[in-house]
């Protein structure tokens, strides 16, 4: 195989960035990588939430541990923010491009194989974005939906912690909030039912051997994620956790 001419230094690097950020495949790869990173975060997040079932002490300790990470916490937050922004910006750029590529719609159009999840990527993605903003304002910034939150810290072994457990209970005893969360999380599931396999395909990780498997794995993982996320609010609403 002929040696490829590789231009080193800044010129080479700027070409790499140029190719990634200005090509359809490059932008899709950005979406795929950020998407997969966010999926990974979502699983960790979900596992953390499931500790609600272990009672206030476990859950508050978990939350407290996260809060005390200091610099690491901010690194993770920035990373997640960057992932979200890149994912959304790339999606927006590609959507604009795609709309330009097909300016005239068919009078009649038939879908052949595309799943619901695949066809709803844009609306589901947009709603999830709004949901994330609300979610951050709600539980992290404590700016909305905080009616009934108590400021009394949760204390154990001499350590005072924010009583996040109580915030959760109060919030999700409100059926409106629970339904809102459940619908949003379900949309996340719909998004990922296509997103996970689509990411792997975009990154070129699929071949004829793995594609059928991943095609089933995507929806399965999304289902697990939805079940895990919805379990806590529903349990709270049903007074299983209180």
């Amino acid at each position: 195989m002929e040696e490829d001419v590789v231009v080193g230094g800044n010129a080479g690097l700027s070409r790499v960035l140029e190719r990634i950020l200005h090509s359809t495949i490059g932008l899709k790869a950005v979406m795929a990588l950020t998407g997969l990173a966010l999926v990974g975060f979502a699983f960790v997040h979900m596992a953390g939430h499931l500790q609600m079932f272990q009672g206030p002490a476990a859950y508050n300790h978990y939350a407290h541990m996260l809060q005390s990470l200091g610099g690491i916490k901010w690194a993770i937050r920035l990373g997640l923010l960057a992932a979200c922004v890149l994912h959304a910006v790339a999606a927006f750029k590609l959507s604009m491009r795609n709309a330009k590529a097909r300016p005239v719609a068919y009078a009649k159009q038939k879908w052949l194989v595309a799943s619901i999840g695949a066809r709803l990527m844009r609306p589901s993605g947009a709603i999830i974005l709004f949901f994330i903003l609300y979610h951050l304002l709600h539980f992290t910034a404590l700016l909305v939906g905080t009616a009934g939150f108590v400021d009394v810290p949760f204390e154990q072994d001499g350590v005072a912690m924010v009583n996040v457990y109580q915030h959760m209970i109060v919030s999700f005893q409100n059926p409106l909030i629970t339904v809102g969360y459940a619908v949003s999380v379900a949309l996340l599931g719909v998004h990922l039912s296509h997103g996970i396999q689509s990411s792997l395909q975009t990154l070129g990780a699929l071949n004829s051997t793995y594609r059928p498997f991943v095609k089933q794995l995507g929806p399965l993982l999304s289902g697990l994620l939805v079940a895990g996320f919805v379990a806590v609010p529903v349990a709270i609403l049903a007074r299983v956790i209180h």
Partner: peptide
């Protein structure tokens, strides 16, 4: 034609891009 060809092209394109190949 199977969409596997798209995955293969993505792989080739991304690899070549990251290499900074000419």
């Amino acid at each position: 034609i199977s969409v596997r060809v798209i995955a293969e092209m993505n792989r080739d394109f991304l690899r070549a891009s990251l290499l900074g190949a000419e």
